[in-house]
Design a protein around this nucleic acid. Sequence first.
DNA 1: TTGAAAGCGCTAACAA
DNA 2: TTGTTAGCGCTTTCAA
Lengths: 344, 344
Amino acid sequence: MTDSATTRAARLADVARLAGVSAATASRALNGNDRGVREANRARVLEAAKTLGYTTNLAAQAVARGRSRGVMLVAKGMPDDFANPITAGVLKATQRRSLPFTLVSAGTEQSDLVEAVNLARSHRPETLVITGGRAADDTTIPALIEALRHYEDEGGRVVLISQEGLPFDTVTYANRQGGYDMATALVDLGYREFAVISGMKHGMTQRDRTEGFVAGLADADIEVSADRILVGEFNRDAAYAMTGELLRRNVNVEAIFAVNDAMALGVLTFLRDTGDSRRVAVAGFDDIKALRDITPSLTTVHMPWEQIAEEALAMTVLPRTTPPRTTVVKGHVIVRESTPRVTR
Amino acid sequence: MTDSATTRAARLADVARLAGVSAATASRALNGNDRGVREANRARVLEAAKTLGYTTNLAAQAVARGRSRGVMLVAKGMPDDFANPITAGVLKATQRRSLPFTLVSAGTEQSDLVEAVNLARSHRPETLVITGGRAADDTTIPALIEALRHYEDEGGRVVLISQEGLPFDTVTYANRQGGYDMATALVDLGYREFAVISGMKHGMTQRDRTEGFVAGLADADIEVSADRILVGEFNRDAAYAMTGELLRRNVNVEAIFAVNDAMALGVLTFLRDTGDSRRVAVAGFDDIKALRDITPSLTTVHMPWEQIAEEALAMTVLPRTTPPRTTVVKGHVIVRESTPRVTR
DNA sequence: TTGAAAGCGCTAACAA
DNA sequence: TTGTTAGCGCTTTCAA
């Protein structure tokens, strides 16, 4: 048996007719922002809308208005389980403002990002938030800039999160400083022999974290030889593998700094699988919620994700400036069990 | 300094003019689905679109077409970190089909769901997928049904995931069976004394899992007294607290079944925090990815999330039937370290 | 406070 | 194969 009976959605005109007013009045009544509708009429319109099960046709509204309300988030590099603190933060921030929120998920490549941005543009959203780390040597950056410029020229408002160095308003984290602070903290705890497990060579996020970390060590007169800085994919599995590679070389490592928590988890798991977890300390970066219950609890650089999202949304309501704004959000080191104080 | 210069977005008419064709031809050229455009013209249109940085105005397109392409997912009860296997699965499934994907996040209440569905309806998407567990005694169910009926009457296609028992196409998991199988598995491992940590009394998902578990035990001639079935919020923190409550009563419990993995994590963490982890076995339900690295690894009912999403999307392209379809997806027990075989 | 009417940018019959 | 011409459902001047 196959159903068919298909009516059409109730339109504003239907509501207006039922309420005995014009479409214009119905429109005004339903949007509230326009005062100057007699209370009696407003009530009748609302009533009519309800009985008809009317919902505004947002597409038509967007056409008529030229733009559609709300924030569209373009997120590159969503992990398999979808967990992403920035996305969560932006979602929350929009909810607090009761702004419609839409997510466009880009793939993992920078080129996917450009495509996703253009898809987002097609929706003519009033504001666009772009997130997902950026590569330093990326060849598609000009295309991205072009797409975003078009978007701004059309009257859209864009804010980048963590895609630093592009000519648009940006919120970034103090990656370098976080790495530096972590180095200092670990040295304070008594560690002297380090290794770094990092992500793609040209990812700016991981590069800055690594550089900051190395600089912090340097300021404490500790050097990390290049062969102790391992570079691979930016995820847990790669970190797991790299840790194996590192330890097989039988180097003398007291502490491993992984450039994000996901990778730190890979490191920890490898150490546990091989029974080395007591021997080597591990530190991460991000302080993601999903890891709050692991053992040993992870020393990491806490990032205030919600604040980052808040800053980004706050920026979208400010007028554009030349040059564009950049806000840098700082994290702070939280020492937990994975890096116990060294007693010699 | 504040910028201003705002042009408007390039329209189809602009592209058409630049390409020296009519809007109709430009439209046909850009959508490909319509053959019957001379190759030369198509090329010129594409070229023109590129130089103008044109992107289709999807809102206008939706108005003209009456609906907008793609899948809109309404997800109730997104966790703080946004991790949600169904959402991830649906996203992937849409990507595989290159369908536009939009997420509307509802709150945690059933009433939020109705509101979110109406927001989604406003977008006039061709298909709507609803997810998030349902309460058995919910008073807003009629409102939800009404909203979805309206949507279907308007020609939309809706599929529910895990909101069983409503008059729409549905994909659910075999919650009862999963609970039953888990009981059997634990009994086979040698356990005899059980407790259950469950979520909101009226959540159907957790209720079915609990009932299945109890039934499984009953078939093995094991009874669980009512005071060993604890009910609270459907999350980790509640489970953590409930575990404390349970153990403080000093009952003789060998194994705790938590009705989902997040709660199992709460149980595990409590046990670890109090040094009881060796003494009590723990089992969960869902097999979420985020927990793959915890120690001890968690015995749980594996759910094939991607398959669930696939089934749901597959359903959306089938014609509607009376009565609506229901697909039940089965999980299977995976025994891991958290439930070692009992040796007496 | 209201309504008539002219768009918004696009698609789709229809005719050429 | 192409162009003309009505819409799609809404908002928003403008005039009443």
